[in-house]
């Protein structure tokens, strides 16, 4: 059974500038004694703080929050790409993360080959992908284009291909990031059905999006992230209402050092 259990997890990114990332600095720092209090300090971005989540099989969770609130980071934490720097995160089940449709796509090889590779990346076997190629070809409507190298495709065609692959897999935990809506409206309408099917097949869904409609289609619970913390968690509609009525201004912190607007 798929489940996600996160306890008080935090994700801190060390930001190495050219100076702190250099070996010379580290070696000289050790050998030559303290250069000064600042030399040993690394700027840290606290991307997530005190995240506690308990998601069981069947959960359909929508992540809501403004840009930089930590939605993508949380998805990466749940997928196991980032192990928490504080607290714990335990994920049971086969994870299929769909963050960037372009990753793992090779422009020089044919659409067919890309379908196979993309599937391997998502944890499928070659045999499983061979069985699905026909279905994906029909769905994407790319026809003979599938035999041409990917570089001859338009952006929309690439998205179709990627969506075709993604929606053909059988994940236990599906993690979707926004941006998959960047297809033409007709195709999206067609893709929605497949996307809903996919979500039904998956044991657990976490979906980050700015589109209330898509969120309502796919999710029933909502998590509102702000400044890397969970601001609110509950039924999707309530969270969406609260988020949309959050009022402007005061909640957003201006970038450090920024002047008045």
């Amino acid at each position: 059974m798929a489940s996600i259990e996160v306890r008080d997890a935090s994700v801190d990114f060390p930001i190495f500038d050219a100076k702190t990332r250099s070996l010379k600095k580290a070696v000289l720092g050790v050998v030559g004694g303290r250069i000064g209090p600042n030399a040993s300090k690394v700027v840290v971005v606290e991307a997530l703080r005190g995240i506690t989540l308990d998601l069981q099989h069947g959960a359909r969770v929508g992540l809501i929050g403004h840009n930089g609130a930590g939605k993508s980071t949380l998805l990466r934490l749940l997928s196991g790409i980032y192990e928490p720097t504080g607290g714990t995160a335990s994920v049971q089940g086969r994870v299929a993360p769909v963050f960037d449709l372009g990753v793992g796509m090779d422009p020089e090889i044919s659409g067919y080959e890309n379908i196979i590779i993309r599937g391997l990346f998502l944890g499928m076997t070659r045999k499983q992908m061979d069985e699905r190629v026909g279905d994906i070809a029909t769905f994407t409507e790319l026809g003979d284009y599938l035999r041409l190298p990917l570089r001859t495709y338009s952006t929309g065609m690439r998205v179709r291909l990627a969506l075709g692959v993604v929606t053909s897999i059988d994940p236990e935990i599906l993690l979707l990031d926004e941006g998959i809506g960047a297809v033409d409206a007709d195709f999206l309408r067609k893709a929605r059905g497949r996307l809903t099917d996919l979500v039904d097949r998956a044991g657990l869904l976490v979906f980050a999006s700015h589109s209330d409609d898509l969120l309502r289609d796919l999710c029933d619970t909502g998590i509102w992230l702000e400044h890397g913390q969970i601001r609110m968690q509950g039924p999707l509609d309530e969270v969406l209402v609260a988020y949309n009525n959050r009022g402007p201004g005061p909640k957003r912190r201006p970038p450090a050092g920024g002047g008045r607007r």
């Binding site: 040993s40 971005v45 606290e46 991307a47 930089g68 609130a69 400044h227 890397g228």
Partner: peptide, 10 residues
């Protein structure tokens, strides 16, 4: 710039 909290941590 994302609005996470920037902090300097030892």
């Amino acid at each position: 710039m994302p609005a996470q909290v920037l902090s300097t941590a030892v």
